[in-house]
């Protein structure tokens, strides 16, 4: 009975994953090597043309720009999230719970709606510019919307919790006695930070960075609403190929390339994590 139930659960999972993960991916991969056709989306014969187009300078430029936006977003999230996570992890239980809760509350509103809200705040007649004008700091509205700043602002806002949560977990596991030991052995604040805190929270830093970086490459609606035509993410290109240009094979090739980048990063994360865990003898439960 128990064995039958177990088999049932396993089969169900395998079928589910096969149907909704494997098959779609195979279809996307297949589409990427088909020929484009505006009428029928993708047609035979098989060709590597779309893959070849990935190397065109235009797309390479967009690719690097997107990578740059995502990297900057990740760096800013880390800069903001690291001290925040440290403080949260050091607080007594009740406060820690409350702060994490407050951090998650905005998730109850659709992020698309929240991104529209940012658009209103950053617009030429938005809150920020109204305040700047009223205070007399500027004479005419500052262009905030449709800049790389706006895109990064939006991405950081949406993705910050993904940086904070793994970091809080890492800080929670950091043994305070180790810091006292370092203190005792003559290490000042920066030495304790550099030699003890950072290495021991590295799993959280890597996990948080990936959880920000990977979605940051694909969040096309943030770039759509806040970035205008010039600040595209990889996700925007894919979306445009599918919905605007209707070149499905090329969009599919881009998708597969993005999945490939993510897979490589996750693999590197796995390697780094294993190395850190082996080196540090830290437990592995939260990753």
């Amino acid at each position: 009975m128990v064995i039958n139930f177990r088999r049932f659960v396993i089969v169900l999972t395998v079928v589910w994953l096969g149907l909704f993960v494997l098959v779609p991916h195979v279809l996307v991969l297949l589409t990427s090597v088909m020929s484009p056709d505006p009428q029928h989306l993708a047609v035979w014969p098989l060709t590597l043309n779309s893959w070849g187009r990935l190397l065109e300078p235009l797309y390479a430029e967009v690719f690097w720009h997107s990578l740059w936006l995502s990297t900057l977003t990740t760096a800013i999230c880390l800069l903001l999230g690291y001290p925040f996570a440290y403080i949260v992890a050091k607080l007594p239980g009740v406060w820690r719970g409350l702060l994490l809760f407050l951090m998650i509350v905005p998730f109850w509103t659709n992020s698309l709606i929240r991104t529209y809200a940012i658009k209103l705040i950053l617009g030429n007649k938005g809150l920020v510019n109204s305040l700047l004008l009223a205070s007399g700091l500027v004479d005419e509205p500052v262009q905030l919307l449709y800049t790389p700043f706006a895109v990064i602002f939006g991405l950081v806002y949406v993705l910050l919790p993904f940086m904070v949560l793994p970091l809080v977990s890492s800080f929670g596991k950091l043994d305070g006695t180790l810091l006292e030991a370092a203190h005792d052995l003559g290490a000042g604040f920066w030495q304790r930070f550099r030699l003890i805190i950072v290495p021991l929270t590295m799993p959280g830093i890597i996990a948080g960075s990936l959880m920000v970086f990977l979605p940051a490459m694909g969040m096309f609606y943030v770039a759509d609403l806040l970035g205008g035509a010039k600040n595209l993410l990889l996700g925007n290109i894919i979306k445009n190929q599918f919905l605007v240009v209707r070149d499905w094979p090329f969009g599919a090739a881009f998708s597969v390339a993005l999945i490939g980048i993510m897979a490589v990063l996750l693999w590197l994360y796995f390697l780094a994590n294993r190395r850190i865990n082996r080196a540090g003898g830290l437990d592995d439960e939260s990753f």
Binding site: L178, E180, D184
Partner: peptide, 19 residues
């Protein structure tokens, strides 16, 4: 501060740096 005192401590939990 502790880091400037000419004392050193052997902690109950040893507090060896795991990394």
């Amino acid at each position: 501060p502790a880091e400037k005192r000419p004392f050193n401590t052997v902690f109950q939990s040893y507090a060896l740096f795991p990394h």
